[in-house]
Design a binder for these strands. Structure first.
Lengths: 256, 256
DNA sequence: CCAAAAGTGTTTAAAATACACCCATGC
DNA sequence: GCATGGGTGTATTTTAAACACTTTTGG
């Protein structure tokens, strides 16, 4: 069985390929149907959901590892990525989980780099939900989006990692208009507002939001309005990358 | 020679004691004579100054490693510490430096965990300058404070790590009144202001500064004034930890 | 008594917040 | 035509920034 051989190799020889003791975990945020979502993997046999993660190749830039992991799970390139925290508690051991996993799947291994302690580097990613094709890795049974307000049971400290990621994202939102990375090429003001409200977890004033957003100068209104929608049709906007870069230098404003 | 043996052991057997591929580097800030300073080490033989750093013991919490490293260099316990960034470029190799170092010192080693790639976790520390007794480690010739505006040539990417630390400190200063960690038990308002000005790299209005600071409610004015000083004697203040913790929850203000 | 630094205001400008009105569209 | 959501504008409050005067102290 090809899969078992691959797995055995990973456990017995992975340390020749990857840096020991270091893993990368990604909190992938997407926005869909007015809800902020996170992409999670269901581990085979071993119960519980997990953040997509991986390891750093011996000659690979750490940021590139995160990009590679994201590419594999979402199919996307050049994702917005932000390293936000390192989790270095010696008790966050994956040993038990890994041993349980191998036992269940019927692979033997007594010692393995995978049983050793891991320090994990947390990244969060902001992706365009509509562009993502979630695909599980070979040790996972499923790869699905979850609302951040209805997360399932998660392995290890992954829920804690998620919490930190969300907190960092909220902070970031006050300085850089990172929200745009979660939307498509064009979007309406109400959509953008919903996004902000979902991330921040609170409602914002519609009129003040629009004024502030436009004041940043990083939005460009299109002549097009949203079609086939009840009530007054909202305009589409697009994100003006050039002005964005200029605005970044002079600092961004915060939201309520 | 005891030292050479220790060193040889470190290079040949250190990987049994520490996590491979991971180092910790600390940017230690101190405030003295109206100047923000950083504690640096002069490496023996290999030229250039370096940030105090070290490795994570196999069963040690990452944060504890940083505390241990700081204790060794400054003599202080329970230092204010903040993990701010991980540097994971595969090119940031210490191999050449280490080999040069060993050659110069006359120790032989062909392979060593120390020649492998390191991902380093950056911490910055805020310490009370007057409490610190700088002491070099056994591979360093000197341990000295430098003004952040007159830094010497530094090895590897240490200058870049410093830059990131300073940038993070400035950010942090807008949300948490971290400045207090750099001062002693009591301090005058002008001293506190100088500190802020030095960190932020710009002048602040004396009167507005005082008002804002007092508005946070985390300062307590003592009945004591500074003695033996020309002109009007400023009051001493102390930092009110209890109110500080309360204030943190409701968020802090920014400075100009 | 005067220069220099510190304490305590006030005035002005800007930004955040709250709120009101009109317009378009589908049912 | 009316309920609903969207575009635009104004009043109010809050906060930041600019500025002035008085007080204390050593020389």
């Amino acid at each position: 069985m090809e899969f078992k051989k691959e797995l055995k190799d990973h456990y017995s020889k992975g340390h020749e390929k990857y840096l020991r003791h270091i893993s990368v975990d990604c909190v992938i945020f997407g926005f869909h149907e007015n809800d902020l979502k996170v992409l999670l993997l269901k581990t085979k046999y071993a119960g519980g959901w997990a953040l997509p993660g991986g390891f750093i190749l011996k000659n690979e830039h750490m940021d590139a590892s995160a990009q590679r992991i994201l590419k594999e799970r979402t199919g996307l390139d050049e994702i917005f990525l932000e390293q936000f925290h390192v989790f270095g508690d010696p008790d966050r051991s994956t040993k038990k989980i890994n041993q349980q996993f191998l036992k269940n799947i019927g692979v033997k291994a007594d010692i393995s780099w995978m049983f050793e302690r891991f320090v994990t580097i947390g990244y969060y990613a902001l992706v365009d939900f509509t562009k993502v094709t979630p695909s599980p890795d070979n040790i996972s049974a499923a790869c699905e989006w979850f609302s951040i307000y209805q997360l399932p049971e998660m392995i290890l400290d992954h829920h804690h990692i998620f919490d930190e990621a969300l907190q960092n994202l909220r902070m970031q939102l006050n300085f850089h208009p990172v929200g745009f990375n979660l939307l498509g090429k064009k979007f309406t003001m109400p959509e953008l507002q919903k996004l902000y409200e979902t991330i921040l977890g609170k409602e914002l004033d519609r009129r003040n939001f629009q004024r502030k957003m436009l004041a940043t100068g990083i939005l460009k209104r299109l002549d097009e309005t949203k079609k086939g929608v009840a009530h007054k049709a909202p305009f589409y906007y697009k994100f003006d990358l050039r002005n964005y870069k200029k605005a970044l230098k002079s600092g961004m404003h915060s939201f309520e």
